[in-house]
Every structure is written in structure tokens, then in C-alpha cells.
Amino acid sequence: MAQCVTAFKSMLQARLLEEKLASLYRAGGRIVGGVYIGKGQEAFSAGLAVHLEKGKDVYGPLIRDQAGRLAFGEPLLDTFRTYLGVITGPMRGRDGNVHRGRPREGMPAMISHLGSLLSVVNGMLFARRLQGRLGDSVGATSLGEGGTSTGAFHEALNQAAIEKLPVIIAIANNQFSYSTPNSRQFACGDLLDRARGYGVQGYAVDGTDLTACVSVFSEAVKRARAGGGPQLVVGSLLRLSGHGEHDDSSYIPDQVKSSPLGQDCLPYAESQLKASDLITDEEVRKWKDEFLMEIDAALAQASKEPTPDPFRENWRALSTAGLVEGQFEA
């Protein structure tokens, strides 16, 4: 249950951080591109990542995984540095917002093409096994229900199953892929059919319920570590925001919002943990104050840091300098 508290703190921190990002977006000027938040998906995201160990496991987060990123140990500064595009961040202004990561530290940086990250995580685990250093480490990645319609997802899930890789795939079924409802996204009765179809262990969970998420991912990660192969977890929930901050999500009907899917996981987790005497009002207040201070400090620091200079950029897409045209070695 200690993991529930850790996960809750990441959820709270992520919510406050994303509120800051959204307000920066609305204010205009500071953030160049869009802002993509994970409001409503924090329990499902952190519920997975809280079981992973940075430096040992692989975590390939996707668009709505701020909470998971924090639970895994991504520095707060990476978020601001990437959104602001400063050169001190991991992406150095070359990519932005949620497209960030540190691949060599076990955190690949997502590209926008959905489903394509899973085979990369597979490859990281595959290589570790080949090199004899997989041990009981696992890989985890996430995707929305819409991403499960891609060929890339199906190929990679099948690949993971064939290779019996220790990978956990979190499918956040948030009912809408951008604006497209599930009725136009898939026709199977249950997304767990995706797991069954490939001989993969599947789990369903209420994605708005933190303790349920922590518990189901605990089981999935444990089985993956023990050699049980890929584990696919489908969480039912609702995105409590637009696709990005530019999107008012007016296509989500009120009856869906007021259904159990629309339950906000953050206050629900808070009440659950308080009822179990795991946290107190005072602690939550204290954490909020701390997180807000950390967020402001990180933003202030990233804001002071240099933005990229096109005249200093080396404009080099190859790591082998001698092969860049116009820069041949003599």
C-alpha cells in the first residue's frame, strides 16, 4: 500500500504540473507548440510506473503519462525544458512536449506514430537478454485504445508474445481517440480480446481507481519479472480534457462524463487513501505546497536557460560526422 501513496503523490504532482502547463499554453508565448495532458488518467499511468525501477527497467511512456513519468523518476525539469525547447533539456529544442525521453537511461522518446513504441521496447529487452543482462528487469509502455487499431501495435504485441518478452502494455481505454468514439474504433466486445488473440495474459481494471490500478499492475509486473511473458492491462477511464489544450472535447457527451468512467481519479484516490488512514489532510496540503514550489522553481529555472540558436545548431542528422555531406573527411 506504500506504493499507493507514492503513486498518489505522483498523480498529485502531475495534476499540478499539467495545470501549470495548461495555463502557460492559454497565456500564450512561452510554449511553442501544443500541450497534451493526462487529466483523468493519472491513476492508471502512475499505477504502472510505481512498480518500475529506474536504472533497471525500461519505461516507454506515451502522451498521457506525466504521472507515470514522475513515478518512474523523470526529473520535473525535463518536462519544462522540453516544453520550452531550451537546449539544456533532453531534446534540446529539436523535439517538444511529450516527445521526450532518455533512451540510454531506459526511457525511449515516443514518436507520434501510435503503436510504434512497443517494438522498440521489445528490442531493448531482446538485446538485454541477448547480452545476458536482462535479469528480472521488465519493460513497460502505454497506448490508448485507438493505438490498438494500428498494424504496428499488432505486429509488436505478436512479436513480444513470440519472444516471451517481459513487457507490460498499459492500454488506457479513454473512450475517444481524439474525437472518434469506440464504436468507430473497434468492433470486438472487449479490448482484452487483443491479448487473447496473441496468447498474452490480459487484465481489465477500473482506470479511475488507484488502488485497483496499483494492485493489477503489481500482479502484471510480478508475472513479467518471473518470466510470464507479455502482460496487457486495459484500464477503462475517461480523458478529462481535450486531446490537447486546443481541443474543448465538446464531442464527449454529458452522459459519458457523468458515468462512472468520468470519475476523477485524483480526488477519488485521495478519499480512498484517507479512509484507509494512509494519508492525512495535512500531508496532502503539505505535498501540494511543496509540489507547487518545485514546479515554480523548475519553470523559473528552465525559463532562464538558453533557447536553441540556429547559428550554433550543427544541423547534423548522422552521428558519423564524416558522412554528413559537405563535411567529408579528407
Partner: peptide, 21 residues
């Protein structure tokens, strides 16, 4: 041997390269 999955084949190679293969 790989399954008939060119997308996943290349994705796996990229992941493996990240890990030094």
C-alpha cells in the same frame, strides 16, 4: 527468424541498438 512483421522487425532493431546491439 522474425514473424512477417517488417514494422516490428525494424522497431526491435532500434530498441536493440539503444541497448548497444
Amino acid at each position: 527468424d522474425a514473424p512477417i512483421s517488417e514494422d516490428a522487425m525494424v522497431g526491435l532493431a532500434v530498441g536493440a541498438a539503444i541497448e548497444g546491439a
